Each structure stands twice: as structure tokens, then as C-alpha cells.
Simulated scan of single mutants.
Amino acid sequence: MTAFLIGNFMLNGTVGVLLYLLITKKKKIFADRYGMVVAMCGSGVLSLHLAMLTVFLIPDYFIIQVLFALGIGAFIGKKFGSLMKYQSLLSGLFHGIIGGIMGMMLGIVILNPSLCGLPSASLNSLQDNMLIFTVFGTILVIMTGSLLYYSLKV
């Protein structure tokens, strides 16, 4: 399971880097409003999923999870937000950090459902839930990246 999570983390990181490079090459053709939308969508979804994967990979160290989720969110938000002027920088940074915090919370609830009053999960259902949410998050990141790429062509 750990090898699958690490591979998934690397796949999503690669999708994020490719999306950033594509948008950076074409940033002169779009306006500030579009840059802000790209910064919000790209940084929010990507940081949410990478932070959730971080919680799955490092389940026992809460402080490291928080710092890594905030670091991932801030880094992705700053990179996507630097595409345009100050408004998209702030919105990208904000949505990146919020996405990282939400991904961390989602991962913690998946690992321990009794935090939200849900029935406690056995080890098999815990791994099934981790697998389902990881695959769904990967599909979400790929779909968001492909929609942003398509919007550059239109």
C-alpha cells in the first residue's frame, strides 16, 4: 500500500508540475481574472490531494503532517499564484493553504472515522477507504488539469 501511495504522490506531483509549466508558457495570452481562476482551481485541488496523501504516508506524526500540508499548500499556491499580479498571488496562496488544511483533515477523518461520530472502521475497510479516496483524488487532479489545459486552447 505504501508503494502505491508514493507512486500516486509522484504522479500527482508530476501532473502539477506539467500544468504549471504549460500555464507559465502561455501566461501572456490570458487576463488577470483568468489567472486568478487558474490559481484558485489548480492550487486548491492539487494541494488538497497531496496533503491527503501526506497524511496517509505519515500517519503517526501530527506536527509533521500539519507542517507538510501547510508547506505544500503555500508552495503550490505561491507557484500558481505567481502567474499574474498580486490578486492572483494572494488568491492562489490562500486557496493552496486552505486546500492543504482540508486535505489534512480529510485524511485524518479517513484514518479515524470516529472523530466525526462515524462508526469505527476495521483494518480492511480502512485500506479500502484509503484506496477509494486516493483513486478519486487522482482522477479529480487529472480532470482539473485537463480542463485547465483545455481552457488554454479555447
Score class of each variant (00 low, 15 high):
T14M: 12
L123F: 11
L115M: 10
S120V: 02
M84A: 08
G96N: 02
G92Y: 08
G107L: 06
N124E: 07
V17A: 11
I72D: 03
I29D: 10
L123S: 14
G73Y: 00
P119S: 11
R33K: 12
P59A: 02
S125V: 13
L53G: 07
A31P: 11
L83K: 06
M10G: 09
I98K: 00
Y20W: 13
C41G: 11
L111R: 02
G42H: 05
L19T: 03
D128Q: 11
L50E: 08
F75L: 14
D128N: 09
L21W: 10
G13K: 04
A39C: 15
L123M: 13
S146E: 15
K26N: 11
V109G: 10
G81T: 07
I64C: 01
G145M: 12
L5K: 00
L147D: 06
P59I: 08
A121W: 05
T134K: 07
L46N: 06
L90M: 14
I76S: 01
M105W: 14
Q87M: 05
L126V: 08
V55S: 03
V38D: 00
Y150P: 09
F9M: 08
T144C: 11
G107Q: 05
T54N: 09
M105H: 00
A39P: 03
I29V: 12
N12C: 05
L89K: 10
L140K: 01
I108L: 01
L148M: 12
L89H: 07
L48D: 02
K25L: 15
L140E: 06
A39D: 12
F80A: 04
T2E: 10
V109Q: 01
L111Y: 03
K26Y: 07
S91N: 09
F4P: 04
I101W: 02
L89W: 15
A121Y: 09
G145V: 12
T134G: 14
I72T: 09
L21T: 00
K85Q: 14
I142M: 09
I23G: 01
S151R: 13
G16S: 10
